[in-house]
Design a protein around this nucleic acid. Sequence first.
DNA 1: TACACATTTCTGGTATACAAAAAGACGTAG
DNA 2: CTACGTCTTTTTGTATACCAGAAATGTGTA
Lengths: 225, 225
Amino acid sequence: MSRNGKLATDLVQKLERDIVTGVLKPGDKLDERSLSERFGVSRTPVREALQTLAGSGLVATMPRRGTIVASITVADLIEMFEVMAELEAMCARLAARRMPRADIEKLIALGNECSELQEHADADAYYEANVNFHEVIYSGCRNSFLERQTKNVRNRLAPYRRLQLHRPGRVKKSNAEHSEILEAISTGDAERAGKLMHQHVAVQGEALNDLLAIVPRGYLEPLAS
Amino acid sequence: MSRNGKLATDLVQKLERDIVTGVLKPGDKLDERSLSERFGVSRTPVREALQTLAGSGLVATMPRRGTIVASITVADLIEMFEVMAELEAMCARLAARRMPRADIEKLIALGNECSELQEHADADAYYEANVNFHEVIYSGCRNSFLERQTKNVRNRLAPYRRLQLHRPGRVKKSNAEHSEILEAISTGDAERAGKLMHQHVAVQGEALNDLLAIVPRGYLEPLAS
DNA sequence: TACACATTTCTGGTATACAAAAAGACGTAG
DNA sequence: CTACGTCTTTTTGTATACCAGAAATGTGTA
């Protein structure tokens, strides 16, 4: 059975996908034995995978008490969105200065795809296209370290961010903002691109209250880190 | 023998300290068996510690080829400093808006300490005080997530950043910049604080060439990630 | 002398076994 | 009937044994 070659890495990717896509929800227990027999490997690579995921913040490990999919406090959520807005704004600023023409074309295409999907009110499909749109901008900043850093924070926020789109009217507004950002980038207006992206990503004021109101029980910790 | 309670965590902290303080240098091999007998534990916690450090980017693990203290490419170095400047700038902006009066007093004290140490040309002591100065600003941003994120990147850059201070005249200039930043923060001028901090941290133009010129052989990878 | 191939050795990856601590179940006492 | 304490069970943390793959070395041939 046991195929060679870095089983732990595979597990990390599979678990990461399950967490980011919402198959596994914040607070879910990740039992080592269950996982090991589910994936047909021993506990060792499972433990390594969990260790890695803990390092990137996607899961939380409490000594002697097991590991769960990371659930964060309201304070953490606010802080992380604050940082996320800044990171994405930086990506947008740099992208406006550095993104090659070919990628701008790609961005335009994805913008159009978002617009089309918006009509059909398919939240999941739109979410996918939306992710692609943002990723092209990450890539366009031509700073692979910033790109990795940004994706990491995004992944950690994914379970909560996904909820946003279910707010009525959010998809339409989001799409309009995409158009503005796209225009700023393609004209090379770095400052404007950054500012627009910051507003696009930041969750503040009433929008924050709305988000908090629809976060399911268990997604948030009562208190403590 | 084996004392209970999360040996791996201790190892992470010890190795992290050794890397950040320069006892272990980029490119140094981290042999699992040597480490395990040096610390008197089995390979299992050693592997977990290395896994964790790999997650935070301080060491690099090549499949079947062992792990070394992370050595990065010139391109990586430039990218990371670009992000670092932005993160510290964000800390400074937020600190200017949020830092409580008591912390500002602390910052003034540390600024003075830096000034005094500058006279004596003790690079290591100055480096220490300099770290403290910056950490008070991280803390002052009142965003613990941003604080952790910033410290993480700083740790990864530590082996290279330490080299900067050995450039003649750098300490004096750095200290002058601290004064300006301090003034901007204490007067609540967020934009100015951010801009000054960005310039303070960013390594660009001739300064970059100087830095690259004194990076020891082995600190940088020839190519590839 | 230089290069190619085989063998050996060393090191990392995986599995399993054991120990310790926490959670849960059960019984008894109040 | 409830509450507390003890025992069992479950699950994590650590150690050890085994396996596989890559680097190093040695040998033979061109």
